[in-house]
């Protein structure tokens, strides 16, 4: 167990690779109850959300969810989030665990002038992410709802093993799957039922290798209060609308987020990146996330490099004082079926 955002979290259960492979080929489950949940209600809920986010919340319909950003007032992101539309004037926002207090203070500050109410329901909900190509098939016999008929980003109430839950066809692994919002008091019983039908428990370690293979940025690594979020290729998250921090978001990012492949040596967060063959001068970037890829069998990494160098095909990464060749490859590293 390791401390993570105020929670004790398991890094692994049976072993990282076993857990990773289960999610890629069958189904695994992550206890992500540490994530924060804020409910936003009131006649001005939509107007308020439009002003503090970059994606178009007005496009959501009840029962639909989307990925979104909370831009800061000085260039970076306060957080990257998911917004679920419950009904007209009612939304649920899921935020990163380590940002709950910061997000809450930020959102409260910007409610002025809006008829809107925020409630922090983070302690009330447990969140289990069941992920993998067989998820719908494995859960179907134990639900009252036709799961296969639900589209990606659907958000709906359902019975699961008799528990009243909210399900979302979303995830952070690059596979199909459902995230299950369940009352915190029932989470352990639901986990045991999922375990009993053969869903593999998976820890933080596999969650990180899975999201890295899928090319998903992680707040604190690829995003931060200072990193320009359009260093990443997620330009679709910024829509043509007025919102907080607009001028910073639309300015050109000084860095670009690239994917790197290495022959053998794994590279880790913070390792310096150099232009190929350039022996003098400072690094042109650094690794933001890196690991050996269990699915691909070689090391992969994401790195932030100066925009002027981002189109190069080859780079060098310094590992314990020695330079190793790295090849730029497109993100994601892995695309699910």
């Amino acid at each position: 167990m390791v401390p993570f955002g105020g929670w004790d979290m398991p890094v692994q259960y049976a072993g990282l690779k076993t857990e990773h492979d289960a999610v890629r080929t069958s189904a695994g489950m992550f206890d992500v109850s540490h994530m924060g949940e804020f409910r936003v209600t009131g006649p001005d809920a939509l107007a308020f959300l439009q002003g503090v986010t970059t994606n178009d919340v007005g496009k959501l319909r009840p029962g639909r969810a989307h990925y979104n950003w909370l831009p800061g007032e000085s260039g970076g992101l306060i957080d990257d989030i998911y917004i679920y539309m419950v009904a007209d004037g009612e939304y649920l926002m899921v935020v990163n665990a380590s940002n709950i207090d910061k997000d809450w203070a930020h959102l409260q500050k910007h409610t002025a002038g809006h008829d809107v109410n925020l409630s922090n329901e983070s302690d009330q909900w447990a969140l289990l992410a069941v992920q993998g190509p067989k998820t719908a098939e494995l859960l179907q016999p134990f639900s009252d709802t036709d799961l296969a008929a639900k589209k990606k980003n659907a958000y709906f109430s359902a019975k699961l093993f008799g528990f009243d839950v909210m399900l979302a066809r979303t995830g952070y692994t690059g596979e199909d799957g459902f995230e299950v919002f369940v009352d915190a008091s029932e989470a352990e019983a639901l986990w045991d039922r999922l375990l009993a039908i053969g869903i593999t428990p998976a820890g933080l370690g596999a969650r990180d290798t899975l999201r890295l293979e899928a090319g998903f940025p992680l707040y604190g690594h690829e995003f931060s209060d200072t990193i320009h979020p359009l260093s990443s290729s997620y330009t679709w998250v910024v829509k043509d609308k007025e919102h907080l921090g607009r001028a910073h978001i639309t300015a050109a990012p000084p860095q670009k987020l690239i994917g790197l492949k290495l022959e053998r040596v794994p590279v880790r967060e913070g390792y310096p990146v150099y232009a190929d063959g350039v022996q003098v001068g400072p690094p042109i970037g650094y690794v933001t996330s890196g690991s050996s890829s269990p699915t691909l069998g070689h090391p992969i990494a994401m790195a932030l490099v100066d925009a002027a160098h981002a189109e190069a095909d080859r780079f060098e990464v310094e590992v314990r004082g020695k330079r190793h060749a790295a090849e730029r490859i497109g993100l994601p590293f892995y695309r699910g079926a």
Partner: peptide, 30 residues
């Protein structure tokens, strides 16, 4: 867990007890 990379010392290197001489990397850590 699964070891994916091992960095070994140079043959002939003189070491003192307690020196870092090699690195074993698993998927998750070095």
């Amino acid at each position: 867990g699964d070891v994916v990379y091992v960095e070994l010392p140079e043959v002939g290197r003189e070491v003192s007890a307690g020196d870092t001489v090699a690195v074993v990397e698993s998927v998750k850590t070095a």
